[in-house]
C-alpha cells in the first residue's frame, strides 16, 4: 500500500500506521479512508494529498 503526502503541510499518511487522531485503523489504504477525512495536521481534504 502506498504512502501519501499532504501537499500543504508535508504530513505523510502511512497505511501501516493509520491515523489514530481520526480513528483510521492501521492497515487502511489511503483509498479506503472516508472522503470526509482531513489531514490531521493542517485540516485539508484528501484531494490535497499525492502519492509519496
Amino acid at each position: 500500500m502506498k504512502k501519501y503526502v499532504c501537499t500543504i503541510c508535508g504530513y505523510i499518511y502511512d497505511p501501516e500506521i493509520g491515523d489514530a487522531y481520526s480513528g483510521i485503523k492501521p492497515g487502511t489504504s489511503f483509498e479506503e479512508i472516508p472522503d470526509d477525512w482531513v489531514c490531521p495536521v493542517c485540516g485539508v481534504d484528501k484531494d490535497s494529498f499525492e502519492v509519496k
Partner: peptide, 9 residues
C-alpha cells in the same frame, strides 16, 4: 475559529 496552517498547525 481554528485556522490550521495559517501559518502553523
Amino acid at each position: 475559529i481554528e485556522a490550521k496552517m495559517l501559518h502553523w498547525p
